[in-house]
Design a protein around this nucleic acid. Structure first.
Lengths: 236, 236
DNA sequence: CCCGCTAGTGTGGTCAGACCATTACGAAGG
DNA sequence: CCTTCGTAATGGTCTGACCACACTAGCGGG
């Protein structure tokens, strides 16, 4: 039992309960910091600590000045917060790299299966990214940026925002490792060619509703890259 | 491009880079707030905002007083942070309930398959929880607490801390809905009996390495509860 | 010499007040 | 009617102060 509730926790709980009770919804403005401070009987600095947490977690956006775009506004965009959390945990060694990769594997396999099974999934954004990656003039870094977009587009096409957010976060959390791995690959052009072919094959399997093949392909695609880049240790 | 880097971001970036470069590791103490403040040329209140973020994300633990357990200590326990993030996002409607349930489904199925496939997985903690749930004198709330522990124990047995953390967070994020669903079930005793049987069946499938059956059982177990409690709308 | 109490020190937790930068709005002046 | 400048509202930041807490060193009594 926490003997003492810290001041900023009071603010956090108040806002969370306001959200749950429907007193606050996406798009709404939070009361100004000074008003929250006086109404809760809590110093403004403590209020700010709570708002900072909400901001980093992607729940609010803050803006100075006056007018409709100022103040703290509920936005509920989970991407940034999830990415920050995962990135920091990986940095602090709370999340082993292998577990991150394996989780990606689980989620992407599920996404591929869902897309290949669904009849009305919209894969147009995925096709657009794959087409962009066909350019031969891309550097490794540019290629990897598009690759991240591709996997994110797949997750978004599945329509599950939780999976999309987690996958985007996982990918960003290991971004530096992916870049380092690319630098360690001697023949990048050949690797890029192979990756392009795999992307086309995955998309083809999805579009032809061959779900088992889609899952196998994306599984091999991910494990293949990490093995090739010398990052994986023990992926199933 | 962020035109202005806010003061607390500087602190966050400094600590993240210290973690990545190995200058900070789990168990280490952060410099005192006042020292960080002067060394970075940033006000103490801004330093505190950054530390608050790290604390809520489960990266550090703070303690007053002096001695080895005081100050800010790197702990990297992702559970609390993941749970807080998911809970708030669900509250703010950034994460639809259905997507949360579906993600649970994906992760738990993967966990069940991994456990049933692995030869040396230690399922003793899982058995202990299942045994505790066999008591007939449990209230619905107590039963659900144990149920949460059960699913968490399964995830932990798989050895993947990322999946375990996400699953624990997802479960906590929808805890209030699960409780509300239980209250809406008329014949709770019969439901509890059925859930117990399903738990035993799942564990049996895992122990006999019947992975397909384990996946099917856990899938039906979860979808069954949400449908019965009137929570699910569109789970695949 | 040893034990116990006490004053001191270092830490996070909190608050109050001040000032700045930015933005919008409105009134005054052309 | 349009432009311009002042004013207000808001977050962003810093400073300084005080409190609560936990340990530590040193003093005094036995």
């Amino acid at each position: 039992m926490p003997t003492t509730v810290r001041a900023w926790q009071v603010v956090l709980e108040k806002i969370e309960s306001d959200l749950l009770e429907g007193r606050l919804s996406p798009g709404d403005h939070l009361p100004p910091e000074r008003e929250l401070s006086t109404s809760l009987g809590i110093g403004r600095s403590s209020v700010r600590e709570a708002l900072r947490v909400l901001e980093v977690m992607g729940l609010i956006r803050t803006g100075t000045g006056s007018g409709p775009s100022s103040g703290a506004i509920i936005i509920a965009t989970p991407r940034g917060g999830m990415a920050a959390l995962l990135r920091l945990q990986v940095a602090a060694q709370g999340f082993p790299l292998d577990d991150v990769v394996q989780t990606r594997l689980v989620l992407e396999s599920a996404v591929a299966r869902a897309l290949a099974t669904s009849a009305e999934a919209d894969t147009a954004p995925v096709h657009a990214v794959v087409a962009a990656m066909d350019s031969e003039t891309l550097t490794a870094a540019e290629f990897l940026v598009l690759d991240a977009q591709l996997h994110l587009a797949l997750a978004e096409a599945s329509g599950n925002v939780v999976i999309a957010a987690v996958m985007a976060g996982l990918r960003e959390a290991i971004e530096s490792y992916v870049q380092a791995g690319a630098a360690a690959i001697s023949d990048w052009d050949a690797t890029a060619r192979r990756l392009r072919e795999e992307h086309h094959a995955i998309l083809d399997a999805i579009d032809t509703h061959d779900s088992d093949r889609a899952v196998t392909l994306i599984h091999d695609h991910i494990t293949g890259y990490y093995a090739h880049a010398g990052l994986a240790r023990d992926v199933q």
